[in-house]
């Protein structure tokens, strides 16, 4: 092959930009491949590992808007995640709210919120994950 059609030596007048563009391309491609391979060998088949927590509430027009964050420690994505948030005031349950999250990506988080009528600062919020579906 090389004998029939000798490839010319790299032209000395190749603009630097061509090498820069090629180097950036190679870097990005190898980065994506490397990350995916690392992900592939680390944890391929574990089910979603979800945890939910409530953040400080902000008073709004229809009550106290309480942000909920659902985190997923596994690489597997969960869909239709159902979260139930209970507000306990003085040790007694006072309000229950539900929220649904379309997706909680693997190794990622999703944000949403629930709205309580009374101020959650006066009590304690417990947040639980009820279930999910595979995407």
């Amino acid at each position: 092959m090389a004998r029939r059609k000798p490839s010319p030596p790299a032209a000395p007048d190749t603009p630097v930009l061509e090498w820069i563009a090629a180097a950036i391309g190679a870097l990005l491609t190898l980065g994506v491949l490397g990350y995916s391979a690392w992900e592939g060998v680390s944890d391929p088949r574990a089910p979603p590992d979800l945890s939910a927590s409530a953040e400080a509430a902000t008073p709004g027009r229809s009550g106290f808007v309480t942000p909920i964050v659902v985190r997923n420690a596994s690489f597997a994505t969960a869909a239709n995640v159902e979260v139930i948030a209970r507000l306990n005031v003085g040790g007694r349950p006072s309000e229950t709210r539900r929220a649904r999250f379309a997706y909680v990506p693997g190794r990622g988080e999703a944000r949403g919120g629930v709205i309580f009528r009374s101020d959650p600062a006066a009590g304690r919020i417990s947040v639980e994950i009820e279930g999910f579906a595979a995407p």
Binding site: A10, E18, W19, A21, A22, G25, A26, L28, T29, V32
Partner: peptide
């Protein structure tokens, strides 16, 4: 090989960005 570096790799890098 050179075309791969200057068009394919560079182009794919652009596509990712």
């Amino acid at each position: 090989l050179r075309a791969f570096a200057h068009f394919t790799l560079a182009g794919y890098g652009l596509a990712l960005l």
